[in-house]
Amino acid sequence: MLTPTDRRDAVPTPDALADLLQAVSEARDHAAFAALFRHFAPRIKAYLIRRGVAPGQAEDLAQEAMVNVWRKAASFDRQRAAASTWIFTIARNLRIDQLRHDRDATSAAMPADEDAEDIAHDIVDNSPLPCDHAASAEIGLGVRAAIDSLPPEQARVLQLSFYEDQPHAAIAEALAIPLGTVKSRIRLAVGQLRQRLEYLKS
């Protein structure tokens, strides 16, 4: 029997998350969607705030990200990516889109009307993926173990890259190390991840 605290802290397994996403895709299951919302919406909101989005807008974008999860669920393929990866890319793209949109709104002489906003979002929805995501099921499963095996200073550089609104130059400043060292830590970290995953596959 779960206490309310356990319930809040329990993180669903990758398999459970993929099951939920599949239920949304195949059965348009509202309960499954609610479970995904509980897990991901507060994390997406936190991610957006850390990347410099104002809290009110982060709330709105996190909801929009979940709307996208509902609408695009059919394109999720658990053989190719983990649910968390798939949802992370949705949130990431939404933020890029928002930055572009904000810049457009400030640089445009005419105020953007509702239609223009919708079209701007459609363009991003249709923006081509550079990769026709090759089979990478193995990647999803081993990544956690691979991250955990990294030396702390390498893991830190990865974390700052994804979850702080800082270019690599600012990371160098924050950690008081030269930019070249940030780049070499990234190279080492990525190399280690790759090696570790190769090892897990074989």
Partner: peptide, 15 residues
């Protein structure tokens, strides 16, 4: 592409 996917998976894990 495989490298990018690996890094996107890291982003998903860190979420």
């Amino acid at each position: 592409c495989q490298q990018l996917e690996l890094l996107e998976a890291v982003g998903g894990e860190l979420l």
